[in-house]
Computed example of a mutant assay.
Amino acid sequence: MAGTWGMLQRHPRNRKHTNDMKIHIIGSGAIGGMAGAWMAKNGEDVTFVDAWRPHVDAMQANGLRIDGILGPHHLQVRALHPEELDEPIELAFIATKSHHTDSAVELVRPHLTPDATVVSLQNGFNAERIAELIGAQHVIGTVPDYTAALVDPGLLEYTVVGPVYIGELDGALTPRLAEVERLLSHLTTVKVTQNIIGRIWTKQCYMSWIVMSAMVDAPIVEVLRPIENRMLGVAVVRETLPIAAASGVTLESDAYFQPELIADRSAAARRKQSDVIQGLIDHFDHRTNQEPAAREGYQYVKQGSGMWWDIVYRKRPSETRWITGALVERAQALGIATPLNATMAEMVYAIERGERPLGWQNIAELADLAESLGEPLGLE
């Protein structure tokens, strides 16, 4: 019995990390950079690792600068290029884009201690993928609902305050989960969930209307403001709900995502859903944002979603293939038709290849398809 208890204590999920533990942020852009910065500001031992050489060079030379909703900050940090990483890793936060998850895992794998913890601080099904690569016993899943941007090398912009959901993949409550909660709470509210898989799927589903907004070179609040566009977004998200149900996943509700309401096509439900989206618009719109730390008069560089930011500002492929595209692939495997999401994904891919211009005509084209499928786009 004593031997069994000793083995349990050494299991990664039963370890409570100490305050002198070294933390590695793998992917030190918007989401990872913000979390790591606030850990470092609060005395944690943090190392920032990133594949974008100018960003690491800037952090090494001049530190990390942050601006945005919490005001300007500047701190000296330890930053490494990937090839400079050569030390044991006890706790890693992987915060890369989804398409760099495998390479991030390959980077850290040789350095992981036997009881290391790897936290997926990402959008998408990446916790599941990391678990496949290194074992679920090492992995904690999260859903970051704050937004930020890597504006320039060494400069982050914190754009919208929001919580982070965290959980063990099997729903257990463990000492290491409490430690990750403590670390992330330096930046924002942390919500521990025993259904992190459902929470990941929840964001995966509602991000369909975020992907939709990236087809126009306009702030997300302007894309979602017209009633027809709101209802188009609802139709796109509604199409994803059967995929989760067929996968045995229980979706979560919150202030901006209520699966039962989205599934209801009645006029009364559509009016309620329009009000929900208005709340989301107000949350994203810095002119009406009521966060206590909102900065009056500050000119935000990032005005759209992360998808829009990648396409318009960074001139690179977005995570659409790993968000909407991943849902479409799972739907196909289950025999579920997703004409709106499949079409929307292909439209975004064409935009990324330079074969389709950004513009309101993309929304109109998707709306025409929705109406042909019998989706109601009005409130009556």
Rank of each mutant, 00 (worst) to 15 (best):
L261A: 14
Q9F: 03
R109N: 12
P317K: 06
E83F: 10
G124N: 04
H283A: 14
D282Q: 14
V223N: 01
N289L: 12
T117C: 02
K97C: 08
Q122N: 06
A294H: 10
I210H: 03
A79C: 03
W5S: 11
T188I: 00
K41R: 13
L261S: 08
T240M: 12
L80N: 10
S318Y: 00
Q137M: 10
R270K: 09
R182H: 12
I31D: 02
P357N: 09
G354H: 13
Q361Y: 10
A326W: 12
G306L: 04
G167H: 11
P259W: 15
S185V: 11
E252Y: 15
G162W: 02
Q299C: 09
R109A: 08
L70R: 12
F284W: 15
M344R: 00
T174S: 12
G43A: 15
I89V: 15
E365H: 15
R199G: 04
A51G: 12
A255H: 01
G297V: 11
N42A: 06
A35L: 09
E44R: 10
E90I: 00
Y298G: 07
N123I: 00
L232V: 08
V192E: 08
K22E: 15
D57V: 03
T338W: 00
T18G: 07
H11W: 07
E83Q: 03
T18H: 11
V301D: 06
G325S: 03
V301S: 11
M307W: 02
R109T: 06
H55Y: 06
L232F: 04
I336W: 09
R287G: 13
A37I: 01
D264H: 08
S185G: 04
R176L: 06
N362F: 05
D45K: 14
N19Y: 10
I23F: 12
R13A: 06
V139N: 10
V216L: 04
M215T: 07
T142P: 12
V312G: 09
M207A: 04
I26Y: 00
W5P: 08
I363Q: 02
V234N: 08
Y349I: 00
Q204V: 09
A331H: 04
L232K: 00
T343S: 01
Y313W: 02
A131F: 09
E90A: 13
Q76Y: 07
I66T: 14
W322N: 12
E365V: 03
V108G: 05
H99C: 02
L91E: 00
A116H: 11
E355C: 06
S318R: 00
A178F: 01
T159S: 02
E222M: 11
E346V: 04
D67T: 15
M34D: 14
